[in-house]
């Protein structure tokens, strides 16, 4: 199977650590990622209005291109995952959107949502399997108490994304377990970090990040992992000094556990306490 890969804008710039570790791990785990040529930005937010056609085209181009190359599209960034899956769902279900997008892009063979969009974590869970992954771990993260931070874009709306139980997700905890770490469940792990409010309303963002970190620290998490560059940025840059914990991309810990060397992430904050 060809694993077409959609890195998205942030992974090519500010979140190279997320990207590079992922490529190295995927190669090692037997699903090498092949970057989709000439991909465009997905738009970062899903255009909710049914008449927002132009805003769907970036994602649609990627989906069509992947359809023509075997039909699988893997992504890593939570926002890209969210937008790609939802636009794909629109193209499969909404006749008006489908017709307009196909007409605009002058697609020879009309696209109807055939591409299977997978988050990297879904490939790990469903195709590699966490039992198999655990066997491949050479440097287990034994003794490390790590909380998974899902945020919103991986999980919701669950009917379309079908990633995991939106209110009681398990995927990242099972992932951490496979790496030998001790997963820490905490109540705020599926609440929003306020995302782009970091730009327009930093006060609000700091407050919400404070709630998330308090919840994680109450359950004694020593570090957090996430799949989203913006979540990671907020949890680090908008954390109160007394609440700071290291926040890693999940692929960084995966690379570590598999014994792979990758470039360190740019935003760093303190050691695990």
């Amino acid at each position: 199977m060809l694993y077409n890969y959609y890195p998205g804008c942030t992974l090519s710039t500010k979140a190279k650590a997320l990207d590079q570790a992922a490529r190295a791990c995927a190669a090692k785990l037997g699903f090498p990622l092949v970057e989709l040529p000439e991909w465009q930005c997905c738009g970062a937010v899903y255009p909710l209005a049914p008449d927002a056609i132009a805003e769907r085209l970036g994602a649609a181009r990627a989906l069509i291109s992947a359809r023509d190359k075997g039909g699988v599209l893997v992504t890593l960034c939570s926002a890209c995952h969210h937008v790609l899956k939802r636009v794909n769902d629109d193209l499969a279900r909404d006749e008006e959107i489908r017709n307009k997008v196909n007409a605009y892009l002058e697609v020879k063979e009309p696209y109807q949502g055939e591409t299977k969009v997978l988050h990297f974590l879904e490939v790990l869970r469903d195709q590699v399997g966490f039992a198999k992954l655990a066997q491949l771990v050479t440097h287990p993260l034994t003794g490390r108490k790590i909380g998974a931070y899902y945020g919103c874009m991986l999980l919701r709306p669950s009917k379309v994304l079908a990633f995991d139980d939106p209110e009681n997700p398990q995927l990242l905890e099972n992932f951490l377990q496979a790496l030998g770490a001790t997963p820490v469940r905490y109540g705020m792990r599926n609440e929003c970090c306020t995302g782009y409010m970091a730009v327009t309303n930093p006060g609000l963002c700091k407050q919400m990040v404070g709630e998330i970190l308090r919840s994680a620290r109450d359950e004694e998490a020593q570090a957090l992992i996430t799949a989203c560059p913006l979540c990671r940025y907020n949890l680090v840059a908008n954390a109160a000094p007394e609440q700071k914990v290291p926040v890693y991309y999940f692929t960084e810990l995966l690379a570590q556990a598999l014994g792979l060397q990758t470039e360190a992430a740019p935003v760093q904050a303190g050691g695990e306490g």
Binding site: D165, P166, E167, N168, G187
Partner: peptide, 11 residues
């Protein structure tokens, strides 16, 4: 209540 995780019944 397994689909209603937000109420914390499991936690």
């Amino acid at each position: 209540l397994d689909k209603f995780g937000e109420y914390g019944y499991q936690d």
